[in-house]
């Protein structure tokens, strides 16, 4: 059921302008697993995710994503790797003036050679698939609506559908629900969870609400001050225990 790791971080370190953001982090993520990455802001969650798809390059240690080392890839190879890795942003990253469908279609750009502008500039087969993915996130009827007229939760679902059009083998989600109200948050996390389970896609999702992490994830990984302080299956954890471990780690740091 769980195969070879899709993601392997070995003793990874990263700093910016002399401040250490990640310190000696090692992590294996097998296929199909939903990993929640928790920790306060500044703990290094976003940096970790951006190391995985090569937006940042580690200072120390190695990252292997889907068998590739993004830091050592050529430009075209890095593009090919990124096409296999979905990324969901806190602020969605949609073009508000364009329709939901066109935003979803942009997920397929890596498979196309030329720049595209307008829904009709994409091949019909891609449009059919994009509508399917919009249907999967429950927004097929809003396909021609401008994204800036959708609610925050709906926009994030469009962003998830865009990621799905990449047919990703790994999805990275950077605080995908931090800008959403609780109901929309639950819905978006349910969708991510369902995709992970149905399609066997690994998901690494950073969250700062412990309750969401415990309710959604297979496994919880906690960062604090750039170091990994906890890595356990979600089943055995309770919110109180997580907080206790957390506070203890904080006390050690202090």
């Amino acid at each position: 059921m769980i195969g070879a790791p899709v993601l392997r971080l070995s003793e990874v370190g990263k700093g910016f302008h002399g401040t250490t953001v990640l310190d000696d982090v090692s992590l294996d993520v097998p296929q199909g697993q939903f990993v929640a990455l928790v920790g306060p802001s500044g703990a290094g969650k976003s940096t970790l995710l951006r190391l995985v798809n090569g937006m940042y390059v580690p200072d120390r240690g190695t990252v292997r994503t889907l068998g590739e080392n993004p830091a050592a890839c050529s430009r075209s190879r890095l593009r090919a790797l990124r096409a296999r890795v979905g990324f969901v942003f806190q602020q969605f990253g949609l073009v508000g003036r364009l329709s939901a469908l066109e935003n979803v279609l942009m997920g397929s750009l890596a498979t196309l050679r030329l720049p595209r502008y307008g829904v009709m500039s994409y091949p019909r087969a891609l449009r059919v698939r994009a509508v399917e993915h919009l249907d999967r996130v429950g927004l097929a009827d809003q396909r021609f609506q401008r994204c800036d007229t959708l609610s925050g939760g709906q926009q994030q679902r469009v962003a998830v559908a865009r990621t799905l059009l990449q047919s990703p083998e790994l999805i990275l989600a950077d605080e995908p629900v931090a800008s959403l109200d609780p109901a929309a948050s639950v819905l978006v996390l349910e969708i991510l969870k369902r995709i992970s389970a149905e399609d066997g896609i690994s998901v690494v999702c950073s969250l700062h609400q412990i309750e969401f992490a415990l309710a959604t994830a297979d496994r919880v990984v906690a960062l604090r001050g750039g170091r990994l302080v906890l890595d356990e299956p979600a089943a055995g954890l309770t919110a109180d225990r997580l907080r206790a471990i957390y506070d203890a780690a904080g006390a050690r740091d202090g």
């Binding site: 937006m55 750009l109 865009r162």
Partner: peptide, 26 residues
């Protein structure tokens, strides 16, 4: 907003593609 361009780059789009889809419509 720089985010759509960043998102498309993260999805493996080429430079001109990310410009045409992520910056130009805005």
């Amino acid at each position: 907003d720089p985010l759509p361009h960043e998102a498309l780059t993260a999805a493996g789009a080429r430079r001109w593609q990310a410009f045409a889809a992520g910056i130009w419509p805005q």
